[in-house]
Write a protein that binds this DNA or RNA. Sequence first.
DNA 1: GTTCGACATGTCAATAGTGACATGTCGACA
DNA 2: TGTCGACATGTCACTATTGACATGTCGAAC
Lengths: 178, 178
Amino acid sequence: MSLSYALLGLLAVAPASGYELTREFEGDLGRYAWQAGHTSIYPELAKLAGRDLVHVTHEGARGAKTYDITPAGREELRAWLLRPPSEGASVRNEQVLRMFLLSALEPADQRVLLTRIAERTAAAAAELHDVMHREHGDGPRAGFGLLAAEYGRRQYEAVHGWAVWALTQLPAQESAHT
Amino acid sequence: MSLSYALLGLLAVAPASGYELTREFEGDLGRYAWQAGHTSIYPELAKLAGRDLVHVTHEGARGAKTYDITPAGREELRAWLLRPPSEGASVRNEQVLRMFLLSALEPADQRVLLTRIAERTAAAAAELHDVMHREHGDGPRAGFGLLAAEYGRRQYEAVHGWAVWALTQLPAQESAHT
DNA sequence: GTTCGACATGTCAATAGTGACATGTCGACA
DNA sequence: TGTCGACATGTCACTATTGACATGTCGAAC
């Protein structure tokens, strides 16, 4: 399961509690790569601990458990990351699905939707650009976030470019009365 | 559930049997947008028929059932496509996850992985470019496929650009003995 | 005439993931 | 001191999805 590798990957960078990991998934990681809520994260951590891929290093206030990756976990993670791209890699993206189904709409609706996509993606790309250039906040996982942010920015830019191009491919719009 | 909209979207373009729909998911649709196998498609079609969003128009050889979308189904699909981008849109992409976890690897491994990604994405983009320019095969759903192919091509190109950029961000490589 | 591969649909058990619910702690502020 | 919000973990029922298994048909090639 990919979730287990996501957790191993996060813990490989720095030890963290289930709660902190959960919040990690609320950011770019969950937005672009893999979603998960605490209800899947906590049981998964327990399973990983059972397989000795992670272990609890510290129990803090409010029952917080800090997990760290074990050498075996690191091994497992590295093998997965370097494994040749599996054919059955799982993909599921609702926004992309919408774009694929575009031709199910009437041309006028297509135009509306593409225009909206073009606007949103341009705004999102610009925002990420700003965030990255204002300051690369030197908090924990800063390097991690920089690559991810740039990835996101390029994705938005690509979709923006596509939407603009797709608009030109649409049958010429009926000259409305305005 | 997104699968139901994917099916409605496909049927809105042209009537099809469960088998034909299944093969649709083996192409770009399943590769970039939403995965599904026949074991989820057949039951889902039955459910949609129960809600009168699709109906069987024809029973052909080998028990094949041709489904078509109903006006109610078209309505439902249009509403979903034009609905403002839902916050909770589901995202799950194993390849992207690998990229997010890059910093869990040692620099040497990172370089290997990024180089491999750069190569694969360049090849994939070139292949899509070729396919699109050789002939836009005028089979059914040709227009559908063109937009999707261009989308895929731009995605690959964006990831390629990112991988090349990311390589420049890596700490300068140790001068190996070669 | 038979055999094989693509066509075509399905069930069922197991796994993965979500949402609702439940519980309790710690620090800050009024 | 009490109350509220963020911290922190968990269960459980339900839904979605997958993989293994099962069944049968049609056309073509041998």
